[in-house]
Structure formats: C-alpha cells, structure tokens
Design a protein around this nucleic acid. Structure first.
Lengths: 232, 232
DNA sequence: TTTCTGTTTACTGTATACAATATTGAAGGG
DNA sequence: CCCTTCAATATTGTATACAGTAAACAGAAA
C-alpha cells in the first residue's frame, strides 16, 4: 500500500533515471533542428554537454535508434537520421495499420472516462484554433487525441509500438505549417466525428472515419514535408 | 569495393558484438524454459554465467524487455515475463495488423527472387512434414515463411516491428504441440495459397487468405497454449 | 600523380569501480 | 500480537578506465 502511494507521488515529482532526461533532451534537440540530420552524435561529447556519463547517453541513443530518429552503426557511432519522404510513407502506413486496430478495440473497451478525455481535447482544439497556436501546440493536441484512443484499448504492445512511432510522427508534424487554414478546418470536424462513432460504438463507421482522416492528414503532411525538404 | 567484399565475408564469420551473443543465449534459454517465467534475472549473475561484464547483459535485457520476454522495473531489476492468454491475444492482433499491411505491399513489390524463396520454404515444409519434425523446426519454417513476405515489402519499420514481435510468437509456437495432425494438414495448403495470390498479384485474395490463415493459426495456438499453461 | 601500406588517431565496445535505491529483517513501541 | 521504524544487505544506476576497431593520413613505390 505504502508502495503505491509512494510511486504515485514519485510520478508527480521528477524523472526516475538519467536515461529518461537524456532522451528528452535529445528528442527535443532533434525536433527543434538544433541537431540537424546527418550530424554525428559522439557519446562522450553528448555526455559532457549533458553532464552525465556515457552509459545513459549510450542507452538513450539505442532507444532513439529504435524510434528511427538516430542511425547507429557498429563501431562507427550514431548520427541524426535523415528522414526522406519514403520514411514518412513508412511511418504513416504503419500508423494507419495500428490506428485501425486501435479504433476497433477502443469501440469495444471505451469507458466514460475515455470519452470525457476525448471531449476535453476537442474543446481545447476548438478554443485554441481561434487564436494563434504554435506548431508544437497544435501537434501536441493532435497527438494527444490519437493517443487517448490508443490508451483506451488497454493493449500494452499496441501502446509500445505507438510510443516508438510517436516521436517520428512528431518530426514530420513539426516540420510543416500546421497553422495553415485548411488544416485548421479539417482538424476539428475530423476528430469530432471519430469521437461520435466511438461513443456510439459504431465500429464500422469509426474504422472508415479514422482511415479517411489519416489519409487526409498523410497527404497534407506529405505535400508540406516535400516542400520543407526543398527549402531546407 | 574491398569493404563490401570484406563485410560480406564478415557476415559468414561470427557475431559482431557481445550484446548479440547474450541476446541469443537468453532468448534460447527462455524459449527452452531453462529460464522459467517469473524468475529473476540479476545482471551480475548472468554476466558471470556468460563470461561477460554487466554492460552487454544490461543492454540485452533492455532489448528483451522491448520484445516482451522480460519485465524490467526501475531499481528493481528484471525477470522473465509470464505470458498470459491476454498476451497471446495482443501478439496475434498486432501480427494480424502488420501482416495484412505486409501482403498488400508484398503483392506490389515482390520480385521473382522472393517468390523463389517462398517456394523453397514450401518445398521444405512438404518434405519435412512427411517425417517427424521437432517443434522448433516446424516453428522455424513457419516463421521463415512469414518473414520472407515481410522482407519482400522493403519496409524498414515494418521489419523492425516484426523483429520485436517474432521472439514472442516463437514462445507461443514452441509451447504447443505443432506436430499434431490437423496442424500439419493446415500448414502447407494455407501457405501455398498465399504464395499463389502474391505471385498473381491478387491483393484482395492475398489479404483474405492471410487473414483466415492467421485466424486459424491463432485459434489453434490459443487452445493449446491454455492447455499448456494448465499442465505447467 | 596515384595507389598501396603502415601508422596514428579517434571513437565505440567492454570491463570495473562507485553511488544510490529498494528490499529484508530485526528491534522497539503501540 | 501487529505495526512501525531503522539499519543492513543486495542489486541496480552511474561513472570511469581500458581494449579493440575502423577511419584518416602520411609516406613510399609504381
């Protein structure tokens, strides 16, 4: 009992391990293009910069390799991955497969709590789309919405795969102009209908909606990511 | 040029890193139930037993956690995962989602080389099903078949996800009686039809076939795994 | 100049040593 | 008798030191 109390308190406090901190720092640096694609990531250099030893840095790089943000070659070291349009296609084809499974399971497993969470995100979206939101904030809301559905499935391995995919989705989302008008028009109603279908436990409709929603998203991200790569 | 020649030779030789060796040793020990579910995996103990230091063992445990074979808790260490029927359901629902994507892409991308590889496995199956095969050999052939399809997609991330799922599929396959008659009757024709559909680039049929094939496999593995857990 | 080869250098791969944390058990208070 | 508290111990988390490997470069031969 005391253990549960403690660990829940711990959650409020700070991170548990240095690996976690290093991961966050590196992910953010990659998202914000402080660490540009192709740049070499020397373990010792990163360790010095982050005031930790090579161990945690090494473990973080292994995790980042898993997430596709970093390339690691034996005895050669790590570098920031260069993400081509083909990578975007891979990420989104997997995302489609996973999220189709997710909505199916979510329709069956959803609780009132999940629906409330989804509604809350919808509320945040409609509120914030009125004003000027940063790309990061828009991406956060978008991802958060889809993540609630994934979590609602109670499927541990699906959640794991999502957590691997998520940082990569983030890279693509942050590299395009999410604030453009037609995106803003699409974001709210697209998500709203999905919540409806899940609430009504209409599996077939939920499947169709998530499919078309992701296809629209994909084509828009694809177009702007190519543009982004050309200007960079 | 010289590099390519050398690195291909290297491939024939031995493994590159100790982590790789440790991983293989631990996976096999778990598959063969030498390391039984629930048993604690102390880094130092394993390091001693395998004649390496804690570093490679630690990295291997991280990888095994990813593969769902091992549970790791901060400051508490690792243990061999207890896989319940719910885990089997998770693994197979994901497998279904991934392999449906795989056959779609494989139908488009397949080369003559891939078809030849599939035919070869079919040949091995029909040859070996005549005699008494070990559970391991049967599982190897089954997995090999599906892996060729995954590889044929050329989808790096799909291959990554498959490599995470594969060791878990292995656990379930090895815990049941693969040599029973109706399984042997199903294994060859089920796979044969799939090869046909891929060869003829019939995406719709390939999809239906892989779906029903995996469903049959799942229900059989599920039944025998529950039985297995009861007897254990 | 070009190409091969030996040497150097820089980095990762691995091992060991130290610090922090959690579990266990025993002692004391309720 | 049970519950709490505190110390001892065991084990992971982290840091540092060493070994091995591959790339970079310089020098010699063609």
């Amino acid at each position: 009992m005391a253990r549960d109390t403690l660990s829940s308190l711990r959650g409020i406090q700070e991170r548990r391990t240095l690996v976690h901190d290093v991961l966050e720092a590196l992910r953010q640096a990659i998202w914000e293009r402080q660490l540009q694609p192709g740049i070499r990531l020397r373990e010792e250099e990163l360790a010095e910069a982050l005031n930790v030893s090579r161990g945690p840095v090494r473990e973080a790089l292994i995790q980042l390799e898993l997430e596709g943000l970093v390339i690691r070659e034996p005895n050669r070291g790590a570098s920031v991955a260069r993400l081509a349009p083909a990578d975007l296609e891979e990420v989104y084809s997997l995302r489609m497969a996973l999220e189709k499974l997710a909505v199916q399971l979510a329709v069956r497993n959803r609780s009132a709590e999940h629906i409330a969470q989804l509604q809350e995100v919808l509320g945040d979206m409609s509120a914030e789309l009125e004003m000027n939101v940063t790309e990061k904030r828009a991406a956060d809301l978008d991802i958060k919405f889809h993540e609630i559905i994934i979590k609602a499935t109670g499927h541990k391995r699906l959640n794991l795969f999502w957590s691997i995919l998520r940082p990569q989705i983030y890279v693509f989302l942050l590299s395009r102009n999410v604030a453009n008008a037609d995106f803003r028009e699409h974001m709210l109603p697209g998500h709203h209908d999905i919540v409806d279908a899940i609430t009504e436990r209409d599996e077939e409709r939920a499947l169709q909606l998530i499919e078309s929603h992701l296809e629209v998203t994909y084509s828009r991200v694809f177009a702007s990511y190519r543009e982004f790569l050309e200007t960079e």
